[in-house]
């Protein structure tokens, strides 16, 4: 019996300068194997230049349902946006 019980989340950087983006998950024995599997599964068509593998159990996640105010878009605070402020007509850029 294999013990491929660890679930890893895989993140790929598609090119230098961009953030790593979550692409999916896979089972592996350890981090090194997770990277190898990720290479085989997720980067067969030059999708990326760098892979991150993170144990799923190490990810702290929140849910939309946890707490409404956690995700409140603060629509009652429009002054946080530049578009809230009127400019004189003569000012073309600010």
């Amino acid at each position: 019996m294999t013990s491929h019980t660890q679930l890893y989340e895989i993140f790929i950087r598609s090119q230098r300068g961009l953030d790593h983006k979550h692409v999916g998950s896979l089972h592996a024995d350890d981090a090194e194997q997770a990277l190898q599997y990720a290479r085989d599964v997720y980067t067969r068509r030059s999708e990326g230049v760098s892979i991150w593998a993170v144990k799923s159990s190490d990810i702290a996640a929140s849910q939309e349902s946890d707490c409404g105010s956690f995700y409140d878009p603060l629509d009652d605070k429009p002054y946080r946006h530049a578009s809230h402020y009127d400019l004189p007509d003569e000012v073309k850029s600010l």
Binding site: Y79, H84, Y85, L87, L94
Partner: peptide, 8 residues
């Protein structure tokens, strides 16, 4: 840009 605009 919000910072700049509120100052102006």
């Amino acid at each position: 840009s919000f910072h700049q605009r509120q100052g102006y």
